[in-house]
Simulated scan of single mutants.
Amino acid sequence: MRILGVDPGLRRTGFGVIDVQGAKLSYVASGTIVVPTDVTLPLRLKVILDNLRQIVEDTKPDVAALEIVFMNTNPASTLLLGQARGAALCALADRDLAVHEYTALQIKKSVVGAGRAAKEQVQMMVQRLLRLDGIPAPDSADALACAICHAHIAPLTEKLSQMNYQTRTSRGRSRVRAGRLLG
């Protein structure tokens, strides 16, 4: 499975692509989309949209993982970040990718083991987990961490989903059999 992780931002949007085979994680690509600040908001969002579309075309991921944005102390900043995130979601949806969303706490806990980890800790663990020669840039590291989080969580989510389906199916059969016995 190839996973594209995205760390959306209106000034800098990080992306990271990894391959997953069983428990083995392999680095494919990463980088930062630097959005010009001297153009209008619609053009800034278009930069994110166009670049992510191209990254999807170039790397051909199977799924995408994106960080969920929460309200911070500045509502205007949160709104702008949400718009950058919306541009990223549109680019991924436009390429028919399934998008999985994770909170910053989930991502940090999955990668570092602590939900309140510092950015430097995330960068160091991403470097170790992907066996990189150097420490990735902060935005790239966050995007790679998002992809790693999905790689860790997806197998468990799939198993729980299968178990839930089997439980519902077996309950349905029991009711049918009981109904036939009583009827």
Rank of each mutant, 00 (worst) to 15 (best):
V47G: 02
P42H: 10
I48C: 11
I48L: 14
L89P: 01
A64W: 03
I68M: 12
A76F: 08
A76W: 08
T59N: 15
R85F: 03
V69N: 07
Q83E: 11
L45N: 06
T78D: 02
A84E: 05
L43H: 13
L79P: 01
K60G: 14
A65G: 01
L43G: 00
L81S: 11
A87F: 01
E67I: 11
A64E: 06
T78H: 00
T73S: 13
V63A: 08
N74Q: 10
R85G: 01
R53L: 15
D94F: 13
D62S: 09
L66S: 00
L52H: 02
P75T: 09
K46G: 07
L66W: 05
G82I: 07
R95W: 00
D96L: 11
V56Q: 03
G82N: 02
L43S: 14
T73Q: 13
N51C: 08
E57W: 05
N51A: 15
G86H: 10
L49Q: 07
I68F: 06
A88W: 06
M71G: 08
S77Y: 05
N72Y: 10
E67Y: 10
L80P: 00
I68W: 05
R95D: 03
N74H: 10
R44A: 02
D62P: 00
V56N: 02
N72E: 14
R85E: 12
L45Y: 10
N72A: 14
R44G: 00
R53N: 14
A87W: 07
R53W: 02
D50P: 00
G82K: 05
N51W: 04
A64T: 06
T59R: 12
I68G: 07
G86A: 13
G86D: 14
F70K: 03
I55K: 09
D50N: 13
V56I: 11
A88V: 02
F70G: 05
L45D: 14
P75Q: 08
Q83V: 02
L79V: 09
L80I: 15
L66E: 05
T78F: 05
L89Y: 01
L92N: 01
L66Q: 04
Q54G: 01
I48H: 12
F70V: 12
N74K: 11
V69G: 04
C90N: 13
G82E: 11
Q54W: 09
S77W: 04
N72L: 10
L66R: 04
F70D: 06
Q54R: 14
L81W: 12
Q54A: 12
Q83F: 09
Q54D: 06
K60R: 15
L80Q: 11
V63H: 00
Q54C: 03
L97N: 03
P75A: 15
L52W: 02
T78S: 15
D94S: 14
D96T: 09
D58S: 10
